[in-house]
Design a protein around this nucleic acid. Sequence first.
DNA 1: ATCGTTGACGTCAGTAACTGTCATTATATT
DNA 2: AATATAATGACAGTTACTGACGTCAACGAT
Lengths: 183, 183
Amino acid sequence: MPRSGEDARRRLQDAALALFRERGYDHTTTAEIAAQAGVTERTFFRHFPDKREVLFESQEKLATALTQAIAEAPQDLSPMAVLQRAFQQVAPRFEANRSYSLPRQELIERTPILKERETSKLGALSQTLAVSLERRGIDGFRAQLAARSGMAIFALVLDAWFKDPSRSLADYFSRAFVELGRL
Amino acid sequence: MPRSGEDARRRLQDAALALFRERGYDHTTTAEIAAQAGVTERTFFRHFPDKREVLFESQEKLATALTQAIAEAPQDLSPMAVLQRAFQQVAPRFEANRSYSLPRQELIERTPILKERETSKLGALSQTLAVSLERRGIDGFRAQLAARSGMAIFALVLDAWFKDPSRSLADYFSRAFVELGRL
DNA sequence: ATCGTTGACGTCAGTAACTGTCATTATATT
DNA sequence: AATATAATGACAGTTACTGACGTCAACGAT
C-alpha cells in the first residue's frame, strides 16, 4: 500500500488558515499554501477541489453527524423537536474546538467569497436534513420548511455564541426554538 | 454626455443566458459571451464583477422591492405578517416573467456554482430583511429568525411554483405561512 | 530481505477567469 | 462644430484550476 496523504492534507489545511489570517484570503496564492505545507500546488488541488474548500472539511463532518443524530431520534418527536435534539447532540463539537472554529469563523465572516461558500454549504446541509426528516415519514414540504427554519436557528445560534460564549450552546438553542414558536 | 452602456449590458445578459443554456455554464467562456454580444471580454467585466453575476441582476431588484415593501407596511403587523405581505406584493413580478425566470432557474438548479451564488444572495437578502424588520422596532434576534424563516418560505414557495404553476403564488405563500405556524 | 503493487506526489504544459493601464471612440451638451 | 465624459478596445499580466505522464514511497507477498 502507498503512503496515506493524510499528513499533507492536514498540513495544507493548517498552512491555509494561517496564511489566510496573516495576509488575507485573496492575497494568498495556492502555490504559497502548498510551499508552506511542503508540497506542490498540484497536490493542493488533489486534496481540495478548489482554494476555498480547504477550510470546509469540518462542515462535511458536521453534516454526517447531524444526519446520523436525526436518524437515531425517537419516532414520536415532532420535526422541530428532532432537530433541536440533533443540534444539542453536536453542540459539544463546537464548544470543544472554539480555539480552532472561532478564528476560522472570523476569517470566513470578513471574506465574502468564503462567506458565500459557507452559506451554500449550510443550504446544502438543510437539504440533507430535509431528506432525513422525510425518511422519518414527514411530508416533503413540511420537512423542507422545518429543515430550513432549523438551519436558520443553527446559524443564528452559532453566530451569537461566537460573539458571546458566556452562555452555553444548549442554552442558546433552547431559547431560539422557543423564539421560533412565538413567531 | 457619453453613451449609456445599458444596451451592451442587456445584450451581455441575453447572450450569457442563451449560451449557458445551449452549451452549459462551464463550457461557455466569457470571451464567447462578449463576442455574441458584440463587445470585448474586458467590457463584460466592466459590467459584471464576475462570470456568474451576469445572471443575478433581477435578484438585486427583488431585494430593493422587498425592502421597500417592508418599510411601507402598517406598524401593527407581526414580523411574519409583514414578511407575508411583502412577499405577496412582489409575487406578480415572477408571475409576469415566468418565461424568463423559469429557464434561468432551471439553469441555476443544474449548475452547482450558480446555485451557490443564488443561495448566497438569498442569505444576504434575508440579512437585509432582518435589518428592515429591526428598523420597525423588532428585537434583533427575533428579526433575524423571522427573516431567515421567511426566506426559507420564499425559496420553497418559488421552487414549488416553478414546478407546478397551476396554483397562484399568493396561494402557495398563504399555505406555507400556515405550515410554518404548525411547526 | 527483495520484489511488485498501488496510490500519492512532482513536473510541465495549457486554459480561462479576472485585473491594471492606457489609448480611443461615441454621444449629449454647448 | 467643438468639447467633455463615460464607455469601450487593446494588451499584458496574474492566478486558479486541469490533464497527462513519470517517479517515488509504503506496504504486502514471496
